[in-house]
Structures are given as C-alpha cells and as structure tokens.
Design a binder for these strands. Structure first.
Lengths: 102, 102
DNA sequence: CCTTTAAATCGCGATATTTCGATATATGGA
DNA sequence: TCCATATATCGAAATATCGCGATTTAAAGG
C-alpha cells in the first residue's frame, strides 16, 4: 500500500471518475459473448466513455493499477480492469487513520 | 469543499505530516506567554519542525488553508494555524462516498 | 506469414508543482 | 520614525505531470 502513489493516482478527476464507473459494469457496453464470464471492463470501453486518447487511457489505468485500486487481467488481446475493493478500503483506512484526530 | 484542491493539498508527504503534527500542540515548542490562550501554532514553529524555507512553509500552509484543512488566525505579527476537524471529516466523508461501492 | 485489433510504451511540447532566495507587507517596540 | 520580527508574495530553475500522436508489442485469424 503505497499511499504516495495512491493519492497521486486520485489527484485527477478523470481517474477518479473511472474508478466510479468501474463500480458497475452496466456503465459500459455489454461484454462480447466470449467475455460474458469475465469480470472487469476492457480498455477500449473505458476509453470510449472517457473520451481521451488510447495512450492516455492506458497510462491512466496503469497508474490506477500501480496504486492498487484496480486489477488487470489479460485475456487474449484484451486487458480487463476491475476494482480491487479490498485495496480501496485499505487505502481509505490508512488515510482516515492519518487524517483523523487523534 | 473543493475535493480537487483538497486532494492536491494532500498530494505531498510533508503537508500531510504537518496536518498530523497539528493534531497535538505538544509537537511544537511551548507557546509564548502572551499566546498561551491561543489555539493553533505559529508559522515559525511549523517551519522549524518541517526544516524547509520560510517561503515554502508559508505556501504549504496557504495550500492547506485553501483546501479547508486548517484555519489561520492572525494575532499581531503572528499567524496561528490549527486544524479544522469538521472540514477534515467532511472531506473524508466525500472521498469515502466517492470511492466505496456502491 | 500477413493483417487486423487491442493495448502498452515512447517521445514530446505544454502545463503544473516544488522549493528556493529575494523582496514586500504588517506589526510591535525603542 | 526607524528597526526588528513574522509572515506573505514574487520570480525563477528544476522537476513532474498531462495528454497527445506515433510506434511497438501481443494475440487472433485467415
């Protein structure tokens, strides 16, 4: 849990919105038939929704992954990203502990 | 509550540590006799502990203030900074709400 | 193989942040 | 009024981040 990386990853409105979108698969187009069993959302879908370049989305997802907020899983040509709820909670716990008195 | 400013303010280890230090007045030298009734810590004390230049500390405290995490109160030549616990809690609530599923 | 598609990486200019020293402002006291 | 002290603001150099297009890598299919 690198709090430095985590806060840096959150220090961007679009990255935070992506994390919110990933709460619910239905924020994205339905999965392809061959992917319906997989968790997570492929990069192309996230890009379409985020309306930024492919390289930007890739870098964003990479940053969210390095921060521990999402998990990447490759299946063939596709990379599926999904939230890591445990890590997100762990991060919040640390921040709370650091910020709140005492 | 500008979450953008708040996260940016936290995106710096020293600023976060200053927030922690301010949890407890005893992290700093005792107040001058004429200030014992005042809450908060003057900039010079924070600077001494943080070991950065006076201009850096001033800018840091300003950023923490703009983020709403601290309150500044001027008394004569001195500015006393103290945590704004309510604002800090409000920020945490917003972040939790944004990050946590659902 | 060759092509197509998905995603990651590279290189870059633009912009923002960091941190400083120097300077300005405000206050209190001799 | 003049000087010392406390803090804020300015200007600049170093570094980091942003977001793009171009290129590379990886996999699938013909």
């Amino acid at each position: 849990m690198d709090i430095e990386k985590s806060i840096a990853a959150l220090n961007n409105p679009l990255r935070r919105r992506i994390l919110e979108w990933l709460k619910d698969r239905s924020n994205f187009p339905p999965a392809l038939p061959e992917h319906t069993d997989l968790e997570g959302v492929c990069v192309a879908y996230i890009q379409e929704k985020a309306q930024v370049s492919q390289s930007t989305i890739s870098a964003y997802m990479s940053k969210l992954k390095d921060a521990g907020f999402v998990v990447a899983e490759r299946h063939g040509q596709w990379t599926f990203y999904r939230r890591d709820e445990a890590k997100i909670q762990a991060f919040l716990a640390v921040v709370q502990n650091e910020l709140l008195k005492p």
